[in-house]
Every structure is written in structure tokens, then in C-alpha cells.
Design a protein around this nucleic acid. Sequence first.
DNA 1: CGGTTTTGACCCGCGC
DNA 2: GCGCGGGTCAAAACCG
Length: 283
Amino acid sequence: MMEEEKKIRFKTEISGESTWTFPGEAPAGNPTTTYSLTDRESTILSEFGWNLPPESDDRTQEAAGGLKPFALQEASDSTRRLLSPQNRPPSGSPAAPSPENPSISSNSSVDPPAGQPESERRSAAETSNKAKKKKQKQCRQPRIAFMTKSEVEHLEDGYRWRKYGQKGVKNSPFPRSYYRCTNSKCIVKKRVERCSKDPSIVITTYEGQHCHHSLPSSRGFARTHDAASSAQPFYFSNLQFQPHKPVSQPGHWLPLPPHFSVPPAPTDEGLLDDIVLRRMQNR
DNA sequence: CGGTTTTGACCCGCGC
DNA sequence: GCGCGGGTCAAAACCG
């Protein structure tokens, strides 16, 4: 198996600013933050579920086959605000509505008043939605994205997703799919598309923070689980996630956090269970 | 029957 | 102001 096939790129996108960073490569215009993460950045990643254990495991590193490290972009003030303790819901509990997070509040936009003609309901809903949407846009959730080599687009990540849209992408033969977390209280969204230049690469973008745990078992994912079985497992180094600690050297690898991992075979359910349990213990 | 996917229509921001 | 592209909605179809 080619090492190239396991390469992963990583991107953060905050307030519209984004940079893809290749393994071991400095983001343009921000070379000083390439190889280490600040506490803030670690916080961002942990908010996306990347609570990595501090220890490194040589056996896992071997199994990973030697991925190169990737880098993170410096997070902006808006992310710090979004992820600050007062704006963060307590772990495992639903997020509280806030001006920063208007869409978390009860789904009034999808509960139009009954007894009105469709057109009236729609226009009434539209006017109220406009303000909400505007607010939502103003306080856009931080995004995090990564590229993986995979035959399947929708990679198993431990959460359940409902597809709510698909669009063609300009200058790309491949469509982009839009998913929402099926948990009604969770506002996390995910975009999945194939790289137009390299169809074997899947670009997955997460937006928002889960306000609940991932599923304790993979049993509910039979379909995506099976579909994912042909995907390449992918990994990244955990060394970048040591706050203020520069990457010492490439070559120490850990598997991706469980809910982003691709099970090697459909029959490996127990393995996944183990991983997920470990992750939940970390919470 | 309930949950998910599909898909065309619609909205909105942005660049020209 | 207009057109384009990204993102979302929602009804219908599909599926287990």
C-alpha cells in the first residue's frame, strides 16, 4: 500500500477565512503556527470530539503505516468566543440558546402556525426566518475540514446524519452533499464532496459542535458501515495536539479519533465498540 | 409507519 | 441591479 494513499490534509475555517495545510507544510501567511497548537486550538479540536489521549502507542503507529503530520491554522477571535466556557454547553447536555447560537433554540422556523394557507404560512415564516438566518450568518459556526483518500464519501464518524441537500459544485463533476446531525437539539452540519482534481479524495467539512455523545455502538450504522468498508483507514499524528508543544518529528502516529475512523471491515464491530467506549471515557 | 434520501425551488450574499 | 453560486427547504419517493 502506498504511503500517499493515507495522507490527510486538514483545514480550519473560521469567519470565512480558511487555509488548507498539507502535512508538514506551513499555511500561507501564517508560518509560525504551523507545527504547534495553542490551548485554544486544542480546545477547538476537542470541541469537535478530538480528545486524544496524551500517550502514544508504538503498535498503533506501526499499524497506521506512517502518516505525515498536518498543521492547523491559528484560530480567530470569533472561534475563541464561540468556544469560550460561557458559550459552551456543559458536556453531554443540550446546548442552551444564546445570541451566539440562535439556531439552537426551539425549531420555531419549522413549526409554522396551523390553519393558514401554505403561501401565507410560507411568507410569514420567511420574514421571521430572514432575521434568524441573518443572525446565523453573522455568528457562523467554526468549521473544520479534512481530506481523506476514500472510495466512499460518507465516512463513518459515530454520529447519525440526515442528508438535507445536494448541489453541484462549480468546476467539479462531483456533487456536494449536505448533512445535519439527526439529534434535533444538535446543530452540527457536515458537508461532503469529492476533490475535483483527485476524485479519490473526499473533503469532509464539519460545522458546529455536537451537544451530545456519539452513538455507543456502530449497530445503527449498518448501511454506512458496510459502505465504508472499502475505504482506506486514515490516521493522523497526535503530536500536534499537545498545547504549545511543537511536533518533534514525524513518525509517531495514532488512529483518528474513533468517530472519524473508518472500520477496516464490516465484521469488526467489536473493535469499533472498544474505540467508542474509550472515547466516551475521555469525556 | 417512521426515518431517510432525493431533488427542484427558493433565498441570500457577493462580485461585477 | 443583475447574475452566479452556495446553502437550505420541503414535498415526494424510498426503504427497512
